[in-house]
Structure formats: structure tokens, C-alpha cells
């Protein structure tokens, strides 16, 4: 049976866990968005063997589960003397950020490829240097095609944060589980956790859709 007292008791605890969820998502998204762009751009200009190495790494990251990567880095860090004390949350958003950067780089690449050749030719005809061509012409146009999919990855990342439990970060779902463990009010705890996820991610999805439509017209 649903118990409102337990629900009221659970809420602040869950929200504290949710703060970690948000931090991991927001910082992870920033890392993924920046690293993804670097990957997408750098991969074009790198010497062949580094390029090959980066591709291999990208394929590796994409084809192994996020949990495994979290655990691997968590325990690897624990073995490195200077890094033992890095908080699990920090390891969490770095690993999630790197993981998702491999997906976001693909979106950026597709976005850059979607810029018509005529735009590059006009830039050459105006003698614009490559960096200016990229920042003023290519990137703004590529982002229009890229931002919605970056947003979708951010939402996906948000929903992947419960994996942080594996490295003992108390985010929303772990907080709910712990609350349920001590009170047996699992129903209240997980229902509320679900609602919090929904309340946070649904408006975000709507926002992305709106953005998508806005970007579709100049």
C-alpha cells in the first residue's frame, strides 16, 4: 500500500541523490560535447596512424558497456597512487562524458558533412582563412543539424546515470534503493524516483523538439 509518510520522508533524500544525477549529466554533457567536437574535427587532420588509433579507441568505447568502463576506470584509478582520492562522481562524469563523446563526434561529423561544398567554395572565393571558415560558416551550419541529436544524447546520458551505482555514487536510483532497503517502502521510493526522472527529462525532450523546429528555419 502507498504510504504518504514514507513518500514525504523519501523525497528530500531522493532529491539529494538527484543532485548527483544532475551533476553527472550536465558535466558529462559538457565533456561529451567538447570532446566530441574535438574528435570530429581532429580525426580529419591527424596523421594516419594516430587517426587509426583514435578510431580503434572509439570503436572500443562504443562496443563495450558503460558499466564495464566505469568499473574499469574506477578500479584502475584506485591502483594509481595519486588518483586514489578522486571522488567517484568525478570519475563518473568523466567516463560518461568520454563514452558519449564517441557518439556525439559522429553527430558532429554528419553535421559538418551536411554543409554544402558551395559554402566552402564561397569561403575560398572570399579568401577566408580556414579557422574563420570553420568557426563562422561551417560550425554554425553544422550545429543546426547536430544540436537536436546532441540533446537526445544528453537525455540518454541522463537515463544512464543509474549505472553510477556500480562505482558507489549515490545518485537518484541508488538513493531510492537505499531508502527502500532501510524502510521497505520500495514502492514509494521508486515511484518517486521515476516521477523525478520524468519531470526532468520530458520537458527537456520537448525543448529539444522545439529547438529542432526553430533551427530548421533561419
Amino acid at each position: 500500500m502507498w504510504n504518504w509518510e514514507f513518500a514525504a520522508e523519501a523525497l528530500p533524500i531522493l532529491l539529494r541523490g538527484f543532485v548527483n544525477t544532475l551533476i553527472a549529466t550536465v558535466v558529462g554533457t559538457v565533456i561529451a560535447a567538447i570532446l566530441g567536437l574535438i574528435l570530429a574535427v581532429a580525426i580529419r587532420g591527424l596523421p594516419r596512424w594516430i587517426n587509426w588509433l583514435v578510431r580503434l579507441l572509439v570503436a572500443f568505447i562504443r562496443n563495450t558497456p558503460l558499466v564495464v568502463q566505469l568499473l574499469f576506470v574506477y578500479y584502475a584509478f584506485a591502483d594509481i597512487p595519486g588518483l586514489v582520492n578522486v571522488p567517484a562522481l568525478v570519475i563518473g562524469f568523466i567516463v560518461i562524458g568520454i563514452h558519449y563523446s564517441t557518439y556525439m563526434s559522429e553527430s558532429y561529423r554528419a553535421g559538418i558533412d551536411s554543409v554544402p561544398p558551395g559554402q566552402f567554395e564561397a569561403a575560398t572565393a572570399l579568401s577566408l582563412p580556414p579557422v574563420r571558415t570553420f568557426t563562422a560558416i561551417v560550425l554554425p551550419q553544422a550545429l543546426r543539424a547536430t544540436i537536436p541529436s546532441l540533446g537526445n544524447y544528453a537525455v540518454a546520458m541522463f537515463k544512464d546515470t543509474p549505472f553510477l551505482f556500480a562505482i558507489s555514487v549515490v545518485e537518484l536510483v541508488t538513493a531510492a534503493k537505499e531508502f527502500g532497503g532501510s524502510t521497505f517502502a520500495y514502492t514509494e521510493a521508486f515511484t518517486l524516483a521515476g516521477i523525478i526522472f520524468l519531470v526532468a527529462s520530458y520537458p527537456t525532450s520537448l525543448l529539444i523538439q522545439r529547438l529542432d523546429r526553430r533551427l530548421a528555419t533561419y
Binding site: P116, G118, Q119, E121, A122, A125, L126, A136, I137, P140, Q141, R144, Y218
Partner: peptide, 14 residues
């Protein structure tokens, strides 16, 4: 040197 193209190639983001 300046060039004008058949397809204009204006920058749509500006």
C-alpha cells in the same frame, strides 16, 4: 579575385 557562382552560395547562417 572575386567570384560569383551559379548557385549564389550565400552563407545562410548570416
Amino acid at each position: 579575385i572575386g567570384m560569383v557562382f551559379q548557385q549564389f552560395n550565400l552563407f545562410p547562417n548570416m
